[in-house]
Design a protein around this nucleic acid. Structure first.
Lengths: 125, 125
DNA sequence: AGGCTATATAAGCATATGCTTATATAGTTT
DNA sequence: AAACTATATAAGCATATGCTTATATAGCCT
């Protein structure tokens, strides 16, 4: 889950790819069209599209020797929903948070720290 | 607009930061607590928090010498709404797409290409 | 003031990323 | 088959990123 999330966000977190996504939001395009419209070299566009496809954000369909790319809006919404679900999830229901869960419950048991905090709070009022 | 968008996504597109965000979704924490719970060095946590703060995703409040960090859920929703607005926006309303807009309208005027495409389509049916 | 505690920042390093140029692959047309 | 178009992939390079260790800064306490 987290793997997919951060890869998708990473794919979105790059200016060139955001531009490509914006262009694809206007209309589906093949690599050469994107390359022409954005005034970028073809390999540059290809490489970014690969990343976007791997993140599931862009679909492709071949037509002759053109490869048309379209924005997968469905997957965008799914991404955000999964992210919100991730944020709302109880730690006990997430993989890989066993240690964190345990250490989190031990956090407030340090009496010395608690005392210090209370003092500071008292001083601030 | 785009600048903010891709920086926020970039901030989210990193596993350590996603973990930090998840922990902050459970409760506000200071650096030392995050450091302890996630079992990471303090500078590592500090540096990531800085990025998250710069992206506006995390708020901080000082309490004694502790600096408490909390997830800014409001800004998360704003981020997504702005992203959707960016996708829906007409190119004419976006900064920095003047060239693209022009080249896009010129795309379909290449008759040779259009002819080729039509032939291919005909052959494929 | 001096000694704590927590946090921020800096320096250095290894790896990742984005780009370019060059080349390979796939499909189309003649 | 040969030439052509579009795309993918590879190699190489410069910069960015994430981490560690070391050090500086800031706030609190005795």
């Amino acid at each position: 889950m987290e793997e997919k999330l951060f890869k998708a966000f990473k794919a979105l977190g790059e200016p060139t790819r955001l531009k490509i996504i914006k262009m694809l939001s206007v209309q589906s395009m093949c690599v050469c069209e994107l390359s022409a419209v954005l005034d970028m070299t073809q390999p540059r566009v290809s490489q970014h599209l690969k990343i976007l496809k791997e993140a599931g954000l862009v679909n492709e369909s071949k037509e002759g020797y053109w490869v048309y790319h379209s924005l997968n809006r469905e997957s965008l919404h799914r991404l955000w929903n999964q992210f919100l679900a991730f944020l709302d999830a109880d730690l006990r229901n997430l993989e890989g948070y066993e240690e964190e869960l345990q250490k989190l419950s031990g956090l407030e048991s340090n009496e010395k720290v608690i005392a210090t905090k209370e003092k500071i709070r008292a001083n601030n009022t």
